[in-house]
């Protein structure tokens, strides 16, 4: 049996709106084995994106521990946590979040600027990532020259170009038409099956969740 690459232990998280506490996660625990494909489902406000953010190390819990790729994220100061993210996490956003001033290759190259790779090595990695997502011929296109599905594929190429341990995807098909959504889900499935990437995906879409090996339902900050 594969080792757990993600361990969430008794995590609590509360947000405040106008000083009003809004508990989002209430003592939640979760384990994800390496190479798994997990979908997190639940109604709005159930805490699924918060959980995803905590796993990705872009937010911190109020209580509990989060261990990803063998590192207890609570022990890392901000600077080291940023470095850790660049090494271990590939993040796919619902609205792609590509930089509009950069081309597709420029966007994919961004995470590689934090590595010690040479310019040529970076270029080779970018080409490989874009070819993997089927956009080898769109390297010099700017985001506004691409369709939504193509933009999301560029975002996936950006997420995987550093060969991260875990790919986290927040509603990756939420802004796409059915055809594009299918292509993106196929791509995530392929990354999981062929490249053994651990994928954690937040989604509202039951058809998207069907692609996952495990589906967790969250409600009011707790797993069903």
């Amino acid at each position: 049996m594969a080792e757990n690459v993600i361990e969430v232990k008794e995590v609590e998280k509360t947000y405040y709106r106008d000083r009003m506490p809004i508990p989002v996660l209430r003592g939640l625990s979760l384990a994800v084995p390496e190479g798994d494909f997990v979908a997190l489902m639940g109604p709005s406000g159930s805490g699924k994106t918060t959980l995803l953010n905590l796993i990705a190390g872009i937010d911190r819990p109020d209580k509990g521990r989060i261990i990803v790729a063998g590192t207890d994220l609570g022990t890392l100061p901000e600077g080291q946590l940023a470095k850790w993210r660049s090494r271990h996490i590939g993040f796919v956003f619902q609205f792609y979040n590509l930089l509009p001033v950069l081309t597709a290759s420029g966007n994919v190259e961004l995470p590689l600027l934090l590595t010690k790779l040479s310019k040529k090595e970076r270029r080779d990695h970018v080409r490989a990532a874009l070819e993997l997502v089927g956009l080898g011929d769109r390297m010099s296109h700017s985001p506004r020259q691409l369709s939504g599905g193509q933009e999301q594929r560029v975002a996936i190429a950006r997420a995987l170009v550093t060969d991260p341990t875990v790919i986290v995807a927040d509603e990756p098909t939420g802004d796409l038409d059915k055809q594009s959504a299918t292509e993106i889900l196929d791509l995530l499935g392929r990354l999981n099956k062929e490249f053994h990437k651990t994928v954690v995906m937040v989604t509202h879409d039951p058809r998207a969740a069907e692609r996952a090996r495990v589906v967790h339902h969250l409600d009011k900050g707790e797993l069903d």
Partner: peptide, 12 residues
């Protein structure tokens, strides 16, 4: 955009 860059690992 800065938040996205931070997510990718860019520091302060």
């Amino acid at each position: 955009e800065y938040a996205v860059l931070k997510t990718l690992g860019f520091g302060a």
